[in-house]
Design a protein around this nucleic acid. Sequence first.
DNA 1: TTGTAAGCGTTATCAT
DNA 2: ATGATAACGCTTACAA
Lengths: 337, 337
Amino acid sequence: MVRLKDIAERVGVSVMTVSRVLRESPDISEKTRARVLAAAKELGYVPDATARGLRTGKTRLWGLVVPGIDEPAGAALASSVEAKAFAEKFELFIADSRGDPEKEREAVYRILSRRVEGIVLAPAGGAETLQSVCNLVGKQPIHLAVVSAEIPDPRPGAAFVEIVFDDAMEALARRLHTLGHQRLGILKTGAWMAEPLAAAARRAAEAAGLAAREETAKEMRPEPAEIARAAERLCLREPKCSALLAVDDLAALQAGTALERQGLKVSKGVSVASCGGTVWTEFAKPALSAIRIPWREAADEAAGLLRAMLEEEAKPSLRRIRAEFIERESLGAPSTG
Amino acid sequence: MVRLKDIAERVGVSVMTVSRVLRESPDISEKTRARVLAAAKELGYVPDATARGLRTGKTRLWGLVVPGIDEPAGAALASSVEAKAFAEKFELFIADSRGDPEKEREAVYRILSRRVEGIVLAPAGGAETLQSVCNLVGKQPIHLAVVSAEIPDPRPGAAFVEIVFDDAMEALARRLHTLGHQRLGILKTGAWMAEPLAAAARRAAEAAGLAAREETAKEMRPEPAEIARAAERLCLREPKCSALLAVDDLAALQAGTALERQGLKVSKGVSVASCGGTVWTEFAKPALSAIRIPWREAADEAAGLLRAMLEEEAKPSLRRIRAEFIERESLGAPSTG
DNA sequence: TTGTAAGCGTTATCAT
DNA sequence: ATGATAACGCTTACAA
């Protein structure tokens, strides 16, 4: 590995001179600059950002911890944060908690030990387990931005980006009610934010005068057959639901397919909606995605907060971002009878 | 930030003693061990892996560079490599080249400057631009594992995981021929590995006695309307293709939808196939995914190679992984006439 | 314009 | 069983 010292010896100057040249400091004669640059190139010098960080105290490192980086939502988050990091000349650690709070804790700890300047966290657990991670990070002189639908009260010392589902869910429930639906089936999985989504759906259904039933598949990405069974329990068994809301697009896609196999026709007879908002789902099956979740906006906001906190002494803040209801073809009137 | 020194002063021992306790070295009296541990906990000590890495020369850091981390294939890769890294107690940098060889070069350089011990690269460009990145990395004392369908010849000094499409494509082409198809439309996008996939499809079509036509959308993830136009050009304009192969599932999904809107029925009349093999696409639309690309296997292999290279002095190796043809419902006989 | 000395937090090595 | 010293590669502070 080539060090400054190697270049210095080669050129016959001090290490400091080389360091200055490479950092483009002024006060360097054109002659030495050229010779140093040439030697650096010739030797294939790659600066050691690790050593620089140790000396300066600035590592230009960020960390991101998500539950499920290969889930559409997690991938959207990763993409947004990575883009910001790259543009700002930060390197980004990514760790996947896989929905496990224990793994999340370990990931955060390990990332802390790398002396990152900030962490974006998409929490795996609920508000309780989040507290403990916030405490851990709070003791370190770094910044934390949490993207979540459940904000602990009182708020720990971190920047929060809260994703709010209520307005969108209420709009959806009202729309379904207007179309003539009386009972909403909620299909929950172990996907990120599934529980807050389901809770918002329940609240909205009640407010709109819809009865609601819920079926749960615990895995983050359940077997298609399991989703099919849940969908059938909701829409084929008494009391039958004429409308189905799945907490994510892929589950909705499966559920819709399953119901059509059973002879129900989506949009006529049974309405199917889902919560989505990633490049992938928007692209693949926009018809179902009635609740658009602003994953990218949330991630951009979180990354923006980290960057902002670098400069100003930003106080722990709370930023709300709202999901929105989008009218889709998969929503229709219930079959009569 | 708490340092070993702080603990040492607190307990009244030397820094080395503290270091030893924290690294669980033997030859430490139970008494001091307990006191050091207590102080470390009390002060909220988090070790500085950066400084450790500087001193030991072992950073336990890996890097991953992909084109499109929010694409199904990129996300699958990230997930696999992250899992291996986490299990092996490595931290993982992730950078997204977004299909741009220039960005890829910068990402690799920046990751090198973090003194990672290994890099997994999913190259953005073809074999030519890959060479230059391999040269850059080759000068450093670290390991490189490349996941690609195009291996440069002669092979640069790196471990290669080659994804091979030919067998699967040939099986697909033969099947289509048997079903009575005479002309295959190939729908290419700017997705990762699109060009090698299309090339393999062309070769396979020719070998099976199918004529082939190709339409290209340059973006990695083109507008649905653009895909629809391309699909229509292939299947509605003379010489009409009775079978369509898209280089990725999402494009196929869009294409299928577009063709059905035009009155063609997928699996009767027009056959639609795609190249997939990620959790998302398998889950959402298995019907279309006739070429299963072993993304995860490839990523696991690449991560495994990195790990192996840590221990033994592994030579630059080449490992082939084959895509497989899977019979799907979306394949049927062409409409007669 | 260039050089010298010291130190960032840790561990290898040798000493006690 | 514990401590002292130096060094990893770099940059800040000061001197020449």
